[in-house]
Design a protein around this nucleic acid. Structure first.
Lengths: 137, 137
DNA sequence: TTCTCTGCAAACGCTTTGCACGGAT
DNA sequence: ATCCGTGCAAAGCGTTTGCAGAGAA
């Protein structure tokens, strides 16, 4: 039993080959893949894998706290197996999404009394270091 | 010529009755309406108004800096005619979206060197004052 | 056998596009 | 007469749902 299989089983999810591989691919990347990205990445080794299974599996991961959804400006939903609190920076030139650290404490919103924040998300759009200075370097 | 008509004309947009009314309804609310919301709100007075026109018009407003798009956790796109910088709080119980003040300066993300943020968005999900303490008051 | 998982196909909700009519310049 | 604006209908995209067959327990 692999580590990932044990992890899934520990959350009450049967560690099917599909689920294990979807989790492994998701956890191995920092590219914040969409469902489609994951499906494409797995096509070579699992040519019969259906998008439905990817969607189903990702939905289970979200419910079980194994992954977080990343909503970026009306784009397709992306997923992240890194459960640490962090912000996301999307480069408007190359489209890549980068993490950056942030403690929720330092971005505490100035809400009216009685409002209870449960989730604080910080998102940036701009130019990444690679795209901002193409002539330097 | 009304104030709104002049505003639209000043941006090079012909102040048709539809456009003027869409802008007026958008500017008069703090509810961050979706295209569908605006279309519904205008049905009584403009029963022939099409959704397409609402979408077209809102797209022009965005392009001309007359409104801002609000992307909330995979929900339908909402619009805001308030161009001031502010965060959005969505109550997960009642679904309402509230503004809260924030200067981008106080939420400056800790990005790696070379990254150039152009837009910083802070979004919260939680319970609003009305839903957080239903028994008090 | 029973129950979950899988995956095809169809439906779905929001948004965009193609196109033709109509009204303004 | 020429444009731009409008609005119907259809397409598009990401995602969800219905259902039947496959596979594990």
């Amino acid at each position: 039993m692999t580590k990932v299989a044990a992890l899934l089983e520990g959350r009450g999810l049967r560690p099917s080959h599909q689920r294990v591989r979807i989790y492994e691919v998701l956890a191995a990347t920092k590219a914040h893949p969409s469902a489609e990205d994951l499906w494409q990445a797995l096509q070579p080794e699992l040519p019969t894998l259906s998008r439905t299974t990817v969607y189903n599996t990702l939905a289970s991961f979200l419910g079980l706290g194994l992954a977080k959804p990343i909503y970026i400006q009306g784009e397709e939903l992306r997923y992240d197996a890194d459960m640490e609190s962090h912000g996301h920076f999307r480069c408007r030139s190359c489209g890549r999404v980068y993490d950056f650290p942030f403690g929720e404490a330092e971005y505490r919103p100035r809400l009216d009394p009685g409002f209870v924040p449960e989730l604080v998300q910080l998102a940036c759009v701009g130019l990444c270091s690679g795209c901002a200075k193409p002539r330097e370097g």
